[in-house]
């Protein structure tokens, strides 16, 4: 049977969302907070519950590797992930399974396409919080294996065009490997949209009276690109991705969203928009494509 990407999702990773969900795995506890985004994730989960899938494949800006793209190559990881910026909000005990076969298959396919790649085989390795937050918010039961893919720093080392070109190749390699694997995969692009944030937080982090977009320019950009994605104008979006990234200080600089759109072969159909919200000033959307 030919494998398939059964869904592709924009699944941002602010640790605040897990904090406010109060799962038993996270040490700190919140009163409330960021409901518009948490309920967006709830709608995504409901939507995904309508389909069957075997694996989550996540591309995270917070596993940063300059020398090529890296893939998890160990079957089990169990540890605690502490956010280096928000350790007071996110100290998450994880226990996860990796689909090493698919991970290796994507790695090999990316290598065939000329990308620098490496498998991560160190069992002491700690999983980044971007991967964990996106996976937890999408599948809090953690009953599916994951494939985690690192982000290269091409946008900073070269420019966004270089990063995007690498991400497009990686997206195609991902799709080809999934198709060859016979598996049904859900892809997660773990990133915010606009990403300029506040540099202070209120004493009570979940005090929502302090939460809003960092600046109007970011909001305009976020709405523009969300609207394009809603309408299936992803090729057009890809063409202005560099401008968006620069002008909205967007987290798309990590290449996650470019990877996702490429893996989905730049959908011209409408996406499901599950919701939008800000976290410490950044713009975040939860969206879903069904190929």
């Amino acid at each position: 049977m030919k494998g398939k990407i059964v869904a592709g999702c924009l699944a941002p990773h602010p640790p605040h969302l897990v904090y406010a969900e109060n799962p038993e795995q996270n040490e700190p506890h919140a009163e409330c907070g960021w409901e518009s985004l948490r309920w967006a994730y709830e709608r995504l989960r409901k939507s995904l519950s309508e389909i069957e899938y075997d694996v989550l494949v996540v591309h995270s800006p917070h596993w940063r590797t300059q020398a090529g793209t890296h893939f998890l190559g160990v079957e089990k990881f169990k540890s605690i992930s502490v956010d280096p910026i928000f350790p007071h909000l996110f100290r998450f005990h994880y226990d996860l399974t990796v689909d090493v076969d698919l991970s290796k298959a994507i790695h090999d396919q990316a290598q065939k396409r000329g990308l620098a790649t490496e498998m991560m085989n160190n069992p002491d390795f700690r999983i980044d919080y971007g991967t964990i937050v996106s996976c937890h918010m999408t599948n809090p039961a953690w009953d599916k294996p994951i494939v985690a893919i690192s982000s290269t720093g091409g946008a900073r080392y070269f420019n966004m065009e270089v990063q995007q070109a690498l991400s497009f190749e990686l997206g195609q390699a991902t799709r080809e490997a999934i198709e060859a694997s016979g598996k049904r995969a859900v892809l997660l692009s773990s990133n915010s949209l606009s990403h300029r944030h506040f540099v202070k937080e209120p004493d009570l982090p979940e005090d929502m009276s302090h939460e809003h977009i960092n600046n109007h320019n970011q909001y305009l950009w976020d709405m523009k690109v969300i609207d394009m994605m809603r309408k299936g104008q992803t090729k057009e979006f890809a063409k202005i991705m560099s401008d968006f990234t620069e002008q909205a200080t967007a987290e798309t600089d990590a290449g996650s969203l470019s990877w996702l759109l490429s893996a989905l072969d730049f959908p011209e159909y409408e996406s499901k928009f599950h919701g939008y919200g800000t976290v410490i000033g950044t713009g975040n959307a939860v969206m879903e494509w069904r190929p």
Binding site: W63, R64, T65, Q66, A67, M120, N122, D124, F125
Partner: peptide, 13 residues
């Protein structure tokens, strides 16, 4: 702790 570098994980823990 036992530290592993994000990128140079192959060097060891």
């Amino acid at each position: 702790w036992t530290h592993v570098d994000d990128q140079f994980h192959a060097l060891g823990s």
